[in-house]
Computed example of a mutant assay.
Amino acid sequence: MNPTPSSPVPSEVATTTQQDTVYQTLRQWITVGRFLPGERLKIRNVAADLGVGQMPVRAALQRLAAEGALINVPNAGVTLPVLSVPEFDDLLQMRMLLEGEAAERGSLRLQSEQLAHMQALSERMAKALADLNRDEYLAANEDFHVLLYRASGSPLLFHLIDNLWLKAGPISNQLFDTPDAAACLNDAHEDVMQALEKRDSAAVRRAIERDIFVAGQFLRRSATARRPNKPIKPD
């Protein structure tokens, strides 16, 4: 998996390796919702957070912009995209389609130790929700889904899902903006575990689709409420 967000990137690593590591770290930060929709990323601030020079950060940000994860703003750097409601709805439907397929396939291939790990992650998510700890919840949630989807045995399917997460990450940070979200966000994960115990792959698929749909309804309110970005002034 990608480097953890809290880990600084060693400055003595060779340039190519360092650029790749910075890219992977920033990609992970976007995926888990460290940055908000419309937020501007300043190269010097990101470089300071990572403990590296500005050159590998600049290269990583441009690479992410080329992938559509960031938007270039003339004379002002890069920002996180703000999804329109139609864009969000399309993203949600594609996630349900692909993640449901990966979950159904993965459920047939999980080993006992993987099932135990998923159960521990479900319990970790429940505690994070009780504590209103969004960072802990989002991190455990990602690990839960990654474990299940990778078990599908399809690198291509997981790659497609990972790209969708890159687009969904920034808005996912707003799950906790709705007070009643915490009460139900882990329900589907518990349903997944019950279905896995029964080896009911169709039920696993339905639970994952429901998980994405329910979270999506809370997030859709944020997408509906957001306004287009104001012009960004250069430094």
Rank of each mutant, 00 (worst) to 15 (best):
G33L: 01
L110C: 04
E197C: 07
A66K: 13
R95I: 00
H117S: 14
G33P: 02
M55A: 10
L83A: 08
E197A: 15
E12Q: 12
G153F: 06
F213R: 14
M193W: 09
Q18I: 05
S107M: 04
N186R: 05
P74I: 00
L185C: 07
N2C: 02
H117V: 08
M118A: 05
S11P: 01
Q111P: 06
L138D: 01
S6Q: 15
K233I: 01
D235R: 02
T224R: 15
A69N: 07
Q93F: 05
T25M: 11
M125Q: 14
T31M: 08
M55I: 06
Q119F: 02
P5V: 05
A223V: 07
Q28C: 09
T178M: 10
A66D: 14
L164Y: 08
L157A: 13
L115T: 02
R58C: 06
G153A: 08
E190K: 15
S122R: 14
A195K: 14
H189E: 12
R220C: 00
W29N: 08
S7R: 13
A59W: 05
N2I: 03
A183W: 12
Q18N: 05
A65V: 06
D200V: 02
A102M: 01
Q19P: 08
S107T: 01
Q217E: 13
L160G: 00
R206K: 13
